[in-house]
Design a protein around this nucleic acid. Structure first.
Length: 889
RNA sequence: GCGGGCGUGGUGGAACGGUAGACACAAGCGACUUAAAAUCGCUAGAGCAUAGCUCGUGCGGGUUCGAAUCCCGCCGCCCGCACCA
């Protein structure tokens, strides 16, 4: 084959890999195992460039590890349950199952041409009954072990679609699909007891050295540990004390009132006899539970008329208010307010004319004018706790800092029998019930006599019904089809055998993705996992996915691994499932945009515009239809622009680095790219230019350049194998082989440290070296074989082809990774830059091991140095061996 | 509000505290060609009095023989969390 033909090459080598079965993973003691996993895709129907980037990175690691003698597990599956399938069924008829499996087939067909080193024999979809049946088994085990329970909870309810919405699905207080005003509704829901693991999930973050610091920090904040004082306020009417939790007991002497949540049991009790309280609670119940809705809500309150005694001064009475800004599910649902040092409390106190008393004032000398909160200033939160003056504290006058004051306050209160110090977490239990069809059914039964009864394991899987008594399930009716499906819903009680109702809620799809990594170790087993397999393959050595999963998916998976360990489905060593995590950036693409008469954006496809270089040298774009296409359209436009004949408003705006989206017409379909240039080009491009954790901008020019480079490599190697040997010197051979070893060293380090862009830059440089080398045929062939190997994780098909052309043995995918010879990495002589006062002025080439004094002498003999010294003696000469010389005047 | 990150040529980006701009894109010039494409070669941070010098990694300071890199203070952009007591 004389020319680079990606289509032929890629087809040929994919078949060869298949036949050799080299990506099939099985346990063995001969080699160390390596489990590399990319976050599995949702089967939307099309793969996109983000998938290509994600799976290519995983594939680079997988193939590299294969070459370095590891037993590699690199599986792929489908996160297949979820709302889009139901929405598609609602929009265009059909069934979510057909839609989903059709999409999986399409996406698999689109993915396979990428040439990923995946063990497809382990593939599964989470909507396979064999998978979700095992998930139901897990649920029952969790139930037995007290890891899942039922309780009432306030949720976002869409009254039109008749389902619970996740917070992300509520936009401006309205359902994202129906547009209906969302209600807060109380429902009985299933919850995972993730909050039992708060401390462990937080503390164990410290052990995840190979996770991005950013992700660990995000999880830390999400779990949200705080240390504070919990105590009871005694009521003057003799009722049960009101328990409050505070992280600021140091401000107790600035207390103004006690506030309780509208959902607090006391507020509920009062509402039964007091219509005003009932009305206030109803008012607060309006609006969604989203942060957005809460933030916009003004502070509202109602004085209950109740009074409590200050814990440190029984004569001091404080009023009890119901306030809408107090959350029932944090702390105790009740607070004491110190308006002087808390902005929310201050807003509330101002609105209802409650007292404001400072405990702190700024230290002497602190800058800026200070208006005490009492006199209308903002709440004073000490900017630097160490500079604060503690003026109104209780026996805590010796406290120098706010932090000390807090600890002193906790200690003092404990001594006086007022409450105790406690640690609280922000993390709440995970509500998993969804009123949807296309999810994993929760395997329990509701019986009038026995209550909630778990299904028997032998009845699993509780399979979703495909049709309803012969006719397809109708998804055009709002609500959950399972609810109105009598023959599925009605069942017998597993305990007493009486007539009972099946639970019709299904599980949150995050449950499906919380343990799939474990299932891949034994995907066909009739238990959730097989201990021997899990012990061998777990943990995932390298997990790769998007930063958008930094919290929920990764936190849930960490919880699930612990819970599965408790139930005997994972070994103790797999309580943290992902040893290393890498979060990759997006693939973006520029947008061509203009605005219509009403100022709304209008987008253009790349083929609808003509690009040209403007008079300022920057890229411009023009509506192709308006101009008319022609062979010289771009040149003409550039000319017109130069002459000022184009009105600015006729030019399209070019917005770089935008997330790919259909509506913005900037999607690049991988299938088209593979068709035009081949998979190796797509893989090479998404890895080059940008560091993998950062976004990479897709450009047509960049893709073409990648293709040209691969063609060039093919051409160079073809030249080496066919052209007659030129006269070569041993020096040229040696120089080339030294460069080869340096390239091996650099590329290996790049691949191991996720420096793919740097590795690729290094491969470009090495290719240039090889192309220009004056070495003999044997040395060139040796260097070319190394090049083929070093490229093989990124461009596996081309590398196989080159390997074959160069007479390499077997498959390059199986060939041992080349090793850099340390002796070849060091040169006999080094070139040192000579600085004068830190500025580079000259350079000298000296033997590598020349001693410092000699180097100094050589440096001082340089013309530039002599000129600069002008006869004077240098103050100091710094010689960093092998690095630099700095002459200080 | 709290927490974190980033700022380097026309562009994407390199650079253990040690020659700033590797590698690539876009651009320009040249070779080959009837021509174009492809390919190959060369140029390229800015400026100037051009064997060389000055300036230059958002801005202002500091530490250091030496700072894109470390420290302090600003400015700008991005991300996460948020009536969390």
């Amino acid at each position: 084959m004389s020319r680079y033909s990606a289509a032929e090459i890629e087809d040929k080598w994919q078949t060869a890999w298949d036949q050799a079965g080299i990506f099939r993973a099985a346990r063995t003691k001969d080699k160390p195992k390596y489990y590399v996993l990319e976050m599995f895709p949702y089967p939307s129907g099309r793969i996109h460039m983000g998938h290509v980037r994600n799976y290519t990175m995983g594939d680079v690691i997988a193939r590299y590890k294969l070459s370095t003698g590891h037993n590699v597990l690199h599986p792929m599956g489908w996160d297949a349950f979820g709302m889009p399938a139901e929405n598609a069924a609602m929009a265009s008829g059909g069934h979510p199952k057909d839609w989903t499996y059709g999409n999986i087939k399409d996406m698999r067909d689109q993915m396979k041409p990428l040439g990923l080193s995946i063990d497809w024999s382990r593939e599964f979809a989470t909507c396979d009954p064999e998978y979700y049946g095992q998930q139901q088994a897990l649920f029952l085990d969790f139930l037995k072990n007290g890891l899942v329970y039922r309780k009432n909870a306030v949720v976002n309810w869409d009254p039109v679609d008749m389902t619970v919405l996740a917070n992300e699905q509520v936009i401006d207080g309205k359902g994202w699909r129906s547009g209906a005003e969302v209600e807060r509704r109380e429902l009985t829901q299933w919850f995972f007891k993730i909050s039992d693991f708060s401390a462990d999930l937080l503390d164990a973050l410290d052990t995840l050295d190979n996770w991005p610091a950013k992700v660990r920090l995000m999880q830390e904040n999400w779990i949200g540990r705080s240390r504070g004082l919990q105590f009871g306020f005694e009521r003057t009417d003799g009722g049960d004390p009101i328990e409050v939790y505070t992280t600021r007991p140091d401000t107790l002497m600035g207390a103004s009132f006690v506030g309780i949540s509208p959902d607090h049991p006391l507020a509920r009790d009062l509402a039964e006899t007091n219509p005003e309280v009932a009305a206030f609670r109803a008012e607060c119940a309006k609006g969604g539970t989203t942060e957005e809705a809460l933030e916009k809500a003004p502070k509202m309150g109602l004085d209950t008329g109740l009074k409590v005694r200050h814990p440190l001064n029984p004569d001091w009475e404080l009023p009890v208010w119901i306030a809408n800004f107090i959350l029932m599910d944090y702390g105790t649902g009740a607070i004491f307010a110190c308006p002087a040092h808390d902005q929310r409390d201050l807003e509330f106190a101002r609105k209802y004319d409650l007292p404001v008393t400072s405990v702190y004032v700024p230290a002497m000398g602190e800058e800026g004018t200070f208006i005490p909160p009492e006199e209308g200033g903002p709440a004073y939160v000490p900017p630097k706790p160490e500079t604060v003056r503690y003026v109104n504290g209780f026996a805590g006058a010796e406290a120098q800092t706010a932090h000390e004051a807090i600890n002193a306050a906790i200690a003092l209160c404990e001594e006086n029998g007022v409450g105790h110090g406690v640690t609280k977490y922000r993390l709440r239990d995970w509500g998993l019930s969804r009123q949807r069809y296309w999810g994993c059914p929760i395997p329990v039964v509701h019986c009038d006599t026995c209550g909630v009864v778990p299904e028997k394991k032998e009845n699993l899987p509780i399979e979703l019904p495909y049709d309803e008594d012969g006719s397809p399930i109708d998804f055009s009716i709002p609500g959950n089809p399972l609810d109105r499906h009598p023959s599925w819903r009605d069942c017998t009680c597993p305990a007493c055998g009486a007539k009972a109702r099946r639970e019709t809620d299904t599980m949150d799809t995050f449950v499906d993705s919380s343990w799939y990594y474990a299932r891949f170790t034994a995907p066909r087993a009739d238990t959730p996992t097989v201990m021997a397999e899990a012990e061998y393959w777990m943990n995932v050595d390298q997990y790769i996915g998007g930063i958008e999963h930094a919290i929920l998916h990764l936190l849930y998976s960490r919880f699930f691994a612990r819970a599965m360990n408790i139930c005997g489905h994972l070994p103790d060593t797999a309580r943290e499932p992902f040893d290393a995590l890498f979060t990759q950036g997006m693939v973006t693409h520029e947008i061509y945009q203009t605005r219509d008469a009403k100022g709304r954006p209008v987008y253009y496809l790349p083929e609808e515009v003509i690009e040209f270089i403007g008079k300022d040298g920057k890229k411009r774009a023009f509506d192709a239809q308006k101009f008319g296409e022609g062979p010289n359209a771009a040149a003409q436009l550039a000319q017109f622009h130069m002459e000022g004949k184009l009105a600015e408003h006729d030019l399209l705006e070019i917005i770089p680095s935008a997330k790919m989206s259909k509506s913005k017409k900037n999607v690049v379909d991988p299938v088209n790219i593979i068709g035009a240039f081949g998979a190796d080009t797509a893989r090479w491009f998404v890895l080059s230019d940008s560091p993998p954790e950062r976004d990479v901008e897709w450009t047509a020019a960049g893709a073409e350049a990648a293709y040209k480079h691969l063609s060039r490599v093919h051409r160079i190697v073809a030249g080496i194998t066919t052209e007659p040997t030129e006269a070569a010197t041993p020096e040229a051979d040696d120089a080339l082989l030294r460069e080869m070893h340096k390239a091996i060293d650099d590329v290996t380090k790049g691949v191991e440290s996720f420096g793919f862009n740097a590795a690729i830059a290094r491969l470009y440089a090495f290719t240039n070296t090889l192309a220009k080398a004056q070495a003999g045929a044997a040395a060139k062939a040796q260097a070319a074989r190394a090049l083929a190997q070093l490229m093989s994780p990124m461009t596996p098909h081309l590398s196989e082809e080159l390997w074959q052309m160069l007479g390499g043995e077997g498959l390059v995918a199986h060939a041992p990774w080349p090793l850099a010879d340390p002796g070849m990495l060091v040169e006999d002589s080094v070139t040192l830059p000579i600085q004068i006062n830190g500025k580079r002025r000259a350079e000298i080439t000296v033997p590598r091991d020349m001693d410092k004094a000699e180097v100094e002498k050589a440096a001082l003999a340089q013309n530039a140095v002599i000129r600069a010294l002008d006869g004077a003696r240098p103050k100091k000469i710094i010689v960093v061996p092998g690095r630099i010389v700095n002459v200080v005047l």
